[in-house]
């Protein structure tokens, strides 16, 4: 489903702020894979997701999604294949627009926007049903401006928007990091349900090692712009946080594998 081949990205090349964020990352995801991504600050996790989403183009290497080479496609064209939830709850929704307007925009992801009505009447019923899944009471507030919702509600809504049109690939960039623990658990729960229901191919960054172990069928760890650990299937199910820390030490040959580094 996803094929990332040997990608490199350097920011601000030739300046004092030069930073090589990705150093030859390759990653292959099968259809239906749910991969969790961990790593410390600056390890390149978000950079990898942004590279796939097309926030900017990579310096070297290639990226294809569902067999389509998207290496040179701009962000808005890749959106046809990719659903995204950002870390910042403000980023995934339009605050000044209504809940149903946001959903209607998402329902048209990857299609050309015409002069037809922005929201067809029959869509509203569908949205109401979908919002019920979130269990946040949003189904009765279709015409509420999104800016009036809490961070957790906005994040859950963004999740729904990202999956409203079945994406070939779902990218979750620490989407529960900015929420309080209770809300984070709820949003993560909704994530699990939605991903399982549609068997979505998913890449989820998390700063929580426990979450990374519990969710998904595969786990990768990044360090200094490279994937240093890749554990799948049975081996992943048996993982513990201690295992992860030990493996991190082996993989990087360093003894700085403490919570602080991994949790950022």
């Amino acid at each position: 489903m996803l094929d990332v081949k040997d990608i490199y990205k350097t920011f601000n090349p030739g300046t004092v702020n030069e930073k090589t964020a990705l150093r030859g990352v390759s990653l292959h995801l099968e259809d239906g894979d749910f991969v969790t991504v961990i790593g410390g600050n600056g390890a390149g996790k978000s950079t990898l997701l942004n590279a796939i989403a097309g926030t900017w183009l990579v310096d070297e290497g290639s990226i294809s999604i569902g067999g389509v080479d998207v290496t040179h496609l701009p962000e808005h064209k890749r959106a046809k294949y990719v659903g995204r939830v950002f870390q910042d709850p403000m980023m995934g929704t339009a605050a000044t627009m209504q809940i149903e307007e946001n959903l209607a925009l998402a329902a048209r992801r990857g299609r050309s926007r015409t002069l037809r009505r922005g929201i067809a009447r029959e869509e509203r019923e569908k949205y109401r049903e979908l919002l019920k899944i979130l269990d946040l009471g949003l189904e009765d507030r279709l015409t509420t401006k999104v800016g009036l919702l809490s961070g957790g509600q906005r994040q859950a809504l963004t999740l729904l928007m990202a999956t409203l049109q079945r994406p070939d690939l779902l990218l979750l960039d620490e989407h529960t990091a900015a929420l309080d623990p209770k809300t984070a658990a709820k949003v993560l729960d909704a994530t699990e349900r939605i991903v399982n229901k549609d068997r979505l191919t998913t890449l989820m960054i998390t700063h929580n090692m426990k979450d990374a172990i519990v969710h998904g069928n595969r786990l990768i760890m990044m360090y200094e712009g490279q994937i240093v650990l890749d554990i799948a299937g049975e081996a992943k199910k048996k993982l513990t946080v201690e295992d992860l820390l030990a493996k991190f030490g082996q993989a990087t040959g360093s003894d700085e594998a403490d919570d602080k580094l991994l949790l950022g």
């Binding site: 962000e75 064209k77 929704t93 339009a94």
Partner: peptide
């Protein structure tokens, strides 16, 4: 309203 969101929605 939100250019980021707009681009993410294609």
């Amino acid at each position: 309203a939100n250019g980021n969101m707009a681009r993410a929605q294609g």
